[in-house]
Amino acid sequence: MSENHRHNAPESDIALRVKAMEQLLTEKGIVDPAAIDLVVDYYETRVGPRNGARVVARAWSDPAYHERLMQDATAAIAELGFSGLQGEDMVVLENTPEVHNVVVCTLCSCYPWPVLGLPPTWYKSPPYRARIVREPRKVLAEFGMDVGDDVEVRVWDSSAELRYMVLPMRPEGTDGLSEDELAARVTRDGMIGVAPV
């Protein structure tokens, strides 16, 4: 075992710092490592864009649900069992042939955890936060999404109080698909608004 140990690269300053803080906070009874294990597992395996995809697929399939979603997104999303931290106040933005919506948090990393999970690194990165509000079409094109000149682009800046999710347009030729099949089509990037679905 000590052989193994020796071959490991030395831990980085930040890895040591986090370990030291966890130990000290555990000794003070402020955190419980087992509880940390549980919450990490929850956000790694139980929460993610699959949740948001269920919401989108339901909205595409059920007009009454779609209406509830547009009127009170938080409640409609909770109907499917998704709620909680960083999703207390949700607004769903519907893409149409005339309007394309895209979401950012210019000040930090606000993101709708219950439906999309934890945000990808690029969403939290300075280039995305700086540029998507100044040159959204250019950034979208870099993501591989060309938005026509006749389509209005709306960029929504999330806040600590309000979280957005994009309802993409239902793809052509999906009339016969079940809700499960539709959900499988929906991507995280589609629900942020940086990719078509």
């Binding site: 980085s12 890895a15 370990k19 509880a35 940390i36 956000y43 950034v139």
Partner: peptide, 28 residues
């Protein structure tokens, strides 16, 4: 700022310490 750098199939956490950091932030 330059291009937005993306990672294909990005994991939720990139290093074990990031998981512990998330948990510490979550509770402390």
């Amino acid at each position: 700022f330059g291009p937005v750098v993306r990672e294909e199939d990005e994991p939720v956490f990139h290093h074990p310490w990031e998981k512990r950091a998330f948990g510490l932030e979550f509770f402390t």
